[in-house]
């Protein structure tokens, strides 16, 4: 309801609902959109509810597709509904399900990290730096799960490593839900704080891609695609980034994707994603602070960020263009957006 209120709309204005969620086994409910239907548009009669890809970025791509289909002159639906939609993500419970018939090793871990860092030439304390920056940025976000006002580099460095080299302070927490709206000019006063979609892209590679883990080809291609659609050069025109990283170690990887899209040779990670950096990251929400499994809402938070006026959800300055990056699997699936506070010509 907060999302509807934010958009100045009611259920009667909504044509379609798109739900992003974790895989059913994480939810503990098969096809949870069925029982959630009663909370999504109740009273408006039969509705269109659609679960989209398990990563929030692709969830939101679906209605985004509608928007662009509309602006290109074709109606996305025989019902001629205006393509306004409401993506939302949720997470209820976790479920343990070992994959069948593969290595039945009774152990849990996150092995890829040394493999990610070594080729990047990242310093050993890079994850601590990223965690510190995100925790600090999150203090400006009233909806963040974690507000650690006394966080310091030393505290993060001292935090226990459940699986070396990952510290507790560098891991995500499980959050509750995030909702957001998409709409186009058909939405009346929709220009109010609207985030205009300049591009959306998704890429999924084979699960044993020959690419170097620290620089996945799927991420590169996805970035190339979304920046081409947006007609933008990242460093010149992107003001802020909202990046899904399950643990702080993969943030340098995202930064690297961006650098490559920009045409840089691939510098070592710099302090660019702090609020005063070249590319302020996660001004309102960070996966490490609030993580509905399935990244649902990374994109949506970003949209809220772009649309927000000065002081509203507390970004330091009015953002004009935003790059959003979500991923799933072992840095496998990628979904990206570019959105803008100003309506494209």
């Amino acid at each position: 309801m907060r999302a509807l209120e934010d958009a100045g709309m009611t259920w009667g204005d909504i044509d379609a609902v798109v739900l992003g969620k974790a895989p059913d086994l994480f939810e503990g409910v098969m096809k949870p959109e069925l029982y959630l239907t009663d909370a999504l548009g109740g009273g408006t009669g039969p509705a269109r509810v659609h679960t989209a890809g398990s990563v929030g970025g692709s969830t939101t791509s679906s209605p985004a597709s509608c928007r662009r289909a509309s602006t290109s002159g074709s109606s996305p639906s025989p019902s001629r509904s205006s393509p306004r939609a409401r993506p939302c993500g949720r997470c209820r419970c976790r479920c343990r399900s070992p994959p069948p018939l593969v290595a039945k090793v009774r152990a849990v871990s996150s092995p890829p990290h040394p493999g990610v860092h070594a080729p990047l030439g990242a310093p050993p304390h890079i994850s601590c730096l990223v965690a510190l920056k995100d925790r600090q940025n999150a203090l400006k976000n009233p909806y963040a799960h974690l507000h650690e006002h006394d966080v310091t580099f030393e505290k993060i460095e001292e935090s226990m490593m459940p699986g070396d080299p990952i510290r507790y302070s560098e891991t995500p927490v499980v959050g509750r839900r995030a909702t957001g709206h998409l709409r186009n000019e058909a939405g009346g006063d929709a220009n109010r704080n609207a985030a205009w979609i300049l591009g959306t892209a998704m890429r999924e590679p084979t699960r044993c891609s020959p690419a170097v883990t620290s620089e996945p080809l799927a991420g590169q291609q996805c970035a190339d695609d979304v920046f081409a659609q947006a007609g933008t050069r990242p460093a010149a025109e992107i003001d802020v980034a909202e990046i899904t990283c399950r643990s702080r170690g993969t943030s340098p990887m995202a930064r690297r994707t961006w650098a490559r899209a920009e045409g840089e040779a691939g510098s070592s990670p710099r302090r660019v994603t702090a609020m005063d950096g070249d590319l302020p990251g996660q001004p309102v929400r960070r996966r490490a602070l609030h993580q509905p499994i399935s990244a649902s809402g990374t994109a949506l938070r970003g949209v809220g960020d772009t649309g927000a006026g000065p002081g509203r959800r507390a970004p330091d300055r009015r953002r004009t263009r935003l790059w959003i990056r979500a991923y799933g699997g072992g840095s496998q699936f990628f979904a990206m957006w570019v959105v803008s506070a100003t309506k494209p010509a």
Binding site: H50, S62, M202, R203, T206, Q332
Partner: peptide
């Protein structure tokens, strides 16, 4: 995700999934 082996998504493909 594992069923994508049946498609052979390399180079990476534009892909999505619905749990429906």
């Amino acid at each position: 995700v594992t069923i994508l082996d049946a498609i052979g998504p390399w180079p990476p493909i534009s892909e999505s999934h619905v749990e429906m």
